[in-house]
Computed example of a mutant assay.
Amino acid sequence: MGEFTHVTVLLQEAVEALQVKQGGVYLDGTLGGGGHTEAILRQSGPDGVVYGIDRDWDALRAAGERLAAFGERLKPLHGNFHDAKALLAAQGVAQLDGVVLDLGVSSFQFDEGERGFSFQEDAYLDMRMDQSCGRTAADLCNTLTQEELTRIIRDYGEERWAARIAAFILQAREKKPVETTGEL
């Protein structure tokens, strides 16, 4: 697996909008490569804290390494930003001074063929942000009904040809399970 890299978009604008203050407590609900978190830690020093949530263990590891110089001021948490309230409560955090969410998939997930997000390399069809839980895209392609596949492709992929694509998936899996990005 390669090095986790991600170009943070709108970094200055996002951090400026937070109005970061020294000693503040912040949440980066999508820690990723740690770009926003690094800027917040710098501006909130010497005692500001950032809780960084990510579903991707590789992202947590990489951000921890990248931001090691900030020591205990970085509080990485494994999970989904949807569960931020419970994750923060478990840490004893009752109030935040600001929150940032950089939603989407990072370039790392696309660049690493083994993650199964990209068609640039034929690899196992995984597509999970957290590879330690949940069903893979291959599982879904091979078990869901045409209607369920259509809904997922339409709602999450914003694909106008979702029904047609779902029909092709069902047709392909009649011959053999759809298991790789190339097959999909």
Rank of each mutant, 00 (worst) to 15 (best):
L184G: 01
R164S: 13
K85F: 11
V93H: 00
L96R: 00
F117L: 11
H6F: 15
G35A: 11
E72D: 10
Q12K: 13
E183R: 00
E159V: 09
A166C: 10
Q146L: 14
Q95N: 03
E72S: 07
A167N: 08
E13L: 07
D111W: 07
I169A: 06
T37Y: 05
G79I: 15
L27T: 04
A39S: 08
A138K: 00
D139A: 00
S107T: 14
V105S: 14
L18P: 03
D122V: 03
D97T: 03
E3G: 07
G29N: 07
E112S: 11
Q146A: 10
A163G: 13
E158N: 15
G45Q: 09
A94G: 00
L170G: 04
I153K: 05
D54I: 09
L88C: 01
T5M: 13
Q91L: 02
E38N: 08
S118N: 14
L31I: 15
E183Q: 08
L103V: 10
L140F: 04
R164L: 14
G48I: 02
I53C: 05
L74S: 04
I40D: 01
L184E: 02
D47Q: 03
A39K: 07
S106F: 04
R42A: 11
R115L: 13
H78Q: 12
F70C: 00
K175W: 04
G64D: 12
L18S: 09
G48C: 05
G34L: 06
G34K: 03
L184A: 03
E174F: 04
D155G: 10
G45H: 07
G45A: 11
G64N: 12
V20S: 01
V99W: 02
A162E: 08
G71M: 08
C141N: 02
P76D: 10
M129T: 15
I153V: 13
G104T: 14
A62F: 09
I152C: 15
F4E: 13
R128A: 15
L96G: 01
I152A: 07
E72F: 02
D139F: 03
D122T: 00
F108H: 13
N80W: 06
T30N: 04
G182K: 05
P46T: 01
Q91A: 06
I153S: 10
F81Q: 00
E174W: 01
R66H: 11
F110V: 14
I40T: 00
